[in-house]
Amino acid sequence: MNHLTDLPAWAAIIVCGLLLVGAAMTLVGSLGLLRLPSFYDRLHAPTIATSGGTILICLASMLCFAVLQSRWIFHELLIIFFVIVTTPVTLMLLGQAALYRDRVEDRRDVPRKPKPVAQPDAE
């Protein structure tokens, strides 16, 4: 089952590089969750993992199996696509929830809700 040894050296080097950089990106993203001080700052950290990390690791997987099976492999692109399309939903939900709570608690450092524009011809 160990056919990874069939991988030619040039492909192995590129795959290793992509995997290592991708894994490092994901690690930095997780580290950000630990290090950054406020909730809103921490919102940014996982996006490194979802954009940089996922893309690089998926590219590595594409290249590795494309070379091994000597055919084009594209279905990892779907992973990249769906991860990028679905992260905003979670992040916006978390961000809005935090914003709502902070506004209810009347925190100073959070921007106020913009006043609705007076619309004279609305009625």
């Binding site: 996006t47 905003p88 961000g95 809005q96």
Partner: peptide, 11 residues
Amino acid sequence: LTATPGTAWLE
């Protein structure tokens, strides 16, 4: 904007 780390869309 969400995929770009460093900016988070809030509202």
